[in-house]
C-alpha cells in the first residue's frame, strides 16, 4: 500500500516551468532516493512534500488524504544544515518535540514532567550515539554529530514519512559511511518510509530500495524555459522494508550494503542518465 502518492504534479515559477507531469507512488516501508542535476527541481519537490510550497498543478496525498499546505508532524525532515536548535542542548533538542506535544501553551515542561521527558529520550540519545554529548550545544558538535541529532529529533514523533534533503552532503566520506549505517539501522528498526534527496549517486544506490531520477526530458532550444524536469528513471533496487534477517545485524549494515553491488543493469543506466535525455 502506498503511503505517499503524487498525481500529475507540476510547478511553475513566474512562467518558468520547473517540474511537470510527476506521478509517483511510494510504498510503505520504502527507502526512496532521488537524484538529479542541481537546479532540476528536486529540492522544490521536497518543499512541496513538506507543505512549504504549493504545486501549480496536481496533488500530493499522504495515506490517501491531500497534505495540508503547511508542515505537519506526519512528515519529519532533516536538512543539510540548520536542522537542530542551536540554543538547546542535545538532550533538550530531543525533548523538544515531546514538550511541544504535551505543553500546548508554552511548549515547555517544568519539574517532574520535564525530567520524565528527558528520561524518555535517553534511549534515542543512546541509539544515535550521542549519550556522551547530551549536555552539549549543537555548536560544540561536529557536523556528523549535528546530523545524528537532527535525525534523532525528526524521529521522536514517529512521522509517517521521513524527508531527507541532502542530509549528508556536507560531511566527510568517513563520517558519511557512519551516517549511512545509522539511517539504515533506524529505518529497519522503525519500519518507516524514507524519502531522500541527494546528489551523491553512489549514496542513492547504496541506501535506497528504489531510485528516482529527476531530469528534463524535453528541451526546446528556442524556449529553454518551456519544459520542466520530470521523473526520467524509476529503478527498483531492493524490496521495500526487508525482514530484519535479510540484512546483516552487525553494527555497520551500510558497509555490508556497500559491498553488495547494485543491480548490474541499473548501474550503467545511471551513468548515462545525464546524456540519456534527448
Amino acid at each position: 500500500m502506498s503511503v505517499l502518492e503524487v498525481r500529475g504534479l507540476g510547478v511553475d515559477y513566474d512562467g518558468v516551468r520547473v517540474l511537470e507531469r510527476i506521478d509517483l507512488s511510494v510504498a510503505a516501508g520504502a527507502f526512496c532516493t532521488v537524484v538529479g542535476a542541481s537546479g532540476c527541481g528536486k529540492s522544490t519537490f521536497l518543499r512541496i512534500l513538506l507543505g512549504q510550497e504549493r504545486p501549480t498543478r496536481g496533488e500530493v496525498l499522504l495515506d490517501g488524504v491531500p497534505i495540508p499546505p503547511e508542515p505537519m508532524p506526519d512528515r519529519g525532515v532533516v536538512f543539510q544544515k540548520y536542522s537542530v536548535f542551536a540554543h538547546l542542548s542535545v538532550r533538550d533538542n530531543l525533548a523538544l518535540p515531546l514538550e511541544i506535544q504535551r505543553a500546548r501553551g508554552l511548549g515547555r515542561l517544568f519539574g517532574r514532567a520535564r525530567r520524565q521527558v528527558r528520561a524518555e529520550v535517553a534511549d534515542l540519545l543512546h541509539r544515535i550515539g550521542l549519550e556522551h554529548a547530551g549536555d552539549r550545544y549543537p555548536g560544540q558538535l561536529s557536523g556528523g554529530m549535528q546530523q545524528r541529532l537532527a535525525i534523532g529529533q525528526a524521529l521522536v514523533l514517529k512521522p509517517r514519512v521521513l524527508l531527507l534533503d541532502e542530509p549528508f552532503g556536507a560531511l566527510d566520506p568517513g563520517i558519511k559511511k557512519d551516517m549511512h549505517a545509522l539511517i539504515l539501522n533506524l529505518w529497519q528498526d522503525t519500519g518507516m518510509t524514507v524519502f531522500m534527496v541527494t546528489h551523491d549517486i553512489q549514496e542513492a544506490f547504496q541506501l535506497g530500495t528504489r531510485l528516482v531520477v529527476f531530469d528534463k526530458l524535453r528541451h526546446d532550444p528556442h524556449a529553454p524555459r518551456a519544459f520542466g524536469a520530470t521523473i526520467t528513471y524509476d529503478l527498483p533496487l531492493r524490496p521495500p522494508q526487508p525482514p530484519a534477517a535479510d540484512r546483516p545485524a552487525g553494527p555497520d549494515p551500510a558497509a555490508a550494503a556497500a559491498s553488495q553491488p547494485p543491480a548490474p543493469d541499473a548501474a550503467p543506466e545511471t551513468g548515462e542518465t545525464p546524456d540519456a535525455a534527448p
Binding site: 513538506l50 508542515p71 536538512f79 540548520y82 511541544i100 515547555r108 525528526a154
Partner: peptide
C-alpha cells in the same frame, strides 16, 4: 531565523505561539 528551523519546528507539531516561545 533560518527557514529550515521554522519548517523543522512545524514538523514537530508546534503551533504559532509555541514557535514564538521555543524558537
Amino acid at each position: 531565523v533560518p527557514d529550515e528551523l521554522l519548517v523543522k519546528v512545524q514538523t514537530l507539531g508546534a503551533n504559532s505561539w509555541q514557535i514564538v516561545t521555543r524558537v
